[in-house]
Design a protein around this nucleic acid. Structure first.
Lengths: 165, 165
DNA sequence: GCGGAATAATCAAGTGCTCAACTATGCTCC
DNA sequence: GGAGCATAGTTGAGCACTTGATTATTCCGC
């Protein structure tokens, strides 16, 4: 990143900026570009083949894996790494497709349950093979077992820092 | 992903789907969530501190690193992993801020050059330390040198497959 | 049990992105 | 030298997401 800038601005404020060296820049760019391209590719292929964008897919997956195929809106948002507002919008659209339905929550009058419908489950069943095949083709097929292990290790290390939940 | 579904749909069409086993699912989710959280975090911190979202930042960086601080729109789009349309919109907004300006291209009457202005360069200089500090804090400070090397290796491996340019 | 803070979810306005259509210029080849 | 096609870039409509405000309900201390 920013080689031009880094060579020109030693930056006085609260201590020197800890600029990235050439190695770090390469690592950072490789990571940034590969994640970007992989996510774009998977989302595009899934959307083209099934009409379901990855954000919606993730919601359906989370619901499908929960007992009763239902979940409180907030918890669903957390699991999808989504804001409440975004999830609310997304569930509205999934409701229009008939894949999810909102239900009042018995234990908490403020809350709502998002419930996966049979149609929603069927849509997920149809989309899952496409998605999994994409992940395999563009990720696992490209990496050695050692690389996969390292990827998981790095991911979990970062998660402990970023999402200590 | 999709444990529920994978146990129920052996899927006949063009051969069996190559489902992910438990290890692969953990690796995939760790990767997916960590990349998502890291990008969200970096973008949020940069935007809050400087008013520059990461997509704009990337455009400014690319221009700053090029001789003459100018580049053809298409090439800029490619380097930013952006569609032409998206870049066109983005450059329009950067123009409103006075950070970039469009200039006719001498060699090709169809083409335009995006030129980084002095104000744009100054904005980048102000934002760069914030961004770099974020990358260091949330990424490099969390990982061992071996993990950094592995991250780069994995990223470059995936790039060869996804973007064989 | 009542007043006030906290929580669940939605909504409205503004911004960014995607897709497809469009303009304008350059290229080819007869 | 003009027809047809390719390339560069923009535009507009519509969807998605963000932020901050809003409504409704619950929790808590007294």
């Amino acid at each position: 990143m920013t080689t031009d800038v880094s060579s020109r601005t030693p930056r006085p404020e609260h201590g020197e900026t800890r600029w990235l060296d050439a190695e770090e820049q390469r690592a950072w760019r490789a990571w940034l570009y590969s994640t970007q391209l992989l996510q774009d590719r998977l989302d595009r292929e899934l959307t083209r083949a099934t009409g379901i964008p990855h954000t919606y897919y993730e919601i359906l997956v989370q619901l499908s894996e929960t007992p009763g195929r239902q979940m409180r809106m907030s918890e669903l948002a957390d699991r999808c790494l989504s804001s409440r507002s975004r999830l609310s919008h997304a569930v509205s659209r999934l409701e229009e497709r008939g894949w999810v339905r909102r239900q009042e929550c018995p234990e908490d009058g403020r809350g709502l349950l998002a419930v996966l419908t049979d149609e929603g489950f069927a849509a997920l069943e149809a989309a899952a093979p496409v998605h999994v095949e994409g992940v395999r083709t563009h990720l696992f097929d490209q990496l050695s077992p050692q690389q996969v292990a390292a990827m998981r290790d790095i991911g979990e290390t970062l998660l402990r820092h970023l999402d200590p939940s």
